[in-house]
Write a protein that binds this DNA or RNA. Structure first.
Lengths: 143, 143
DNA sequence: GTTTTTGCAAAGTATTTGCAAATGG
DNA sequence: CCATTTGCAAATACTTTGCAAAAAC
């Protein structure tokens, strides 16, 4: 695979991911793209998701209990995994990146290129269903 | 699955994981246990790894490029993934846990139960092969 | 004796791949 | 035209599961 050539399908996949925040699986993307390209195959979706991830234009997120999920956000950020509904939310931790990397790298003779924090718990919606509490906005959680 | 009953196979799996630091896959554990129980099946290994992970006695680590890996360490810690050789190393970030969780939870109306940091880069051994540099010990990296 | 666990094999998911036809440049 | 991408289907990789026999208690 030498030079990348344009393809309508890949462009559609790229836009689809850029326009959503729900960290879909390959299959979810496939179902969506089929509305525009009824004949697209799941294999093509997988191929393009892999390619885009390699190019750093999207991010692949592996979770322990289901298929991989994909994230259209390019800039580094963190993720929250809800153990109730399985949803994945974005977090942006302010200013901790350098601190973390500096602390971890101190005396480590390998090279650290990047890092992400994975949070686990119960998302606002699921917690609300359990307790009846109200959901308010906050500064780290990115809608 | 009401009460847990002892089994020699499960005990062997538990001990195997406790005695190694290389974050093996289910198959690697299987090959090892077979030395002691030549008839053990891969299914049994998977069943017990799942069970032990549920009980919190081991940890399951999902990586984006290969099968799941397992970690016998019970207390919370972080992981480093080498993009060259695929190895997984343990990190113990001193005292950042509370800071991270506090910062992320500020104003977040869900519940955060825990978190781990994933580092990506090149491990000491691979870097050494590339540059010829020497490997020294450090304070965060756990041998 | 009753319940849990095992080994085996088959099934289930998720993802990748080979290949001829279609598309892009 | 030549290189890349596609759709399709088959193949692969990983993990789970049904069931009768064995082990644990």
């Amino acid at each position: 695979m030498a030079v990348e050539k344009y393809s309508r399908q890949r462009e559609s996949i790229r836009k689809n991911l850029a326009g959503r925040r729900d960290h879909p699986t390959a299959d979810m993307v496939y179902l969506d793209i089929r509305k525009e390209f009824p004949n697209i195959s799941l294999g093509t979706v997988y191929r393009n998701l892999s390619l885009l991830a390699q190019l750093g234009e999207i991010q692949k997120i592996s979770v322990s209990d289901g298929p991989d999920r994909f994230d259209g956000r390019t800039k580094p950020h963190d993720h929250f995994f809800c153990k109730e509904c399985g949803c994945v939310l974005d977090f942006q931790l302010t200013d901790t990146d350098n601190r973390l990397q500096r602390q971890a790298g101190k005396g480590f003779e390998g090279r650290i290129d990047g890092q992400t924090v994975q949070f686990f718990g119960v998302c606002p919606d699921c917690l609300k269903k359990q307790t009846g509490k109200v959901h308010v906005s906050n500064e780290n959680y990115i809608l």
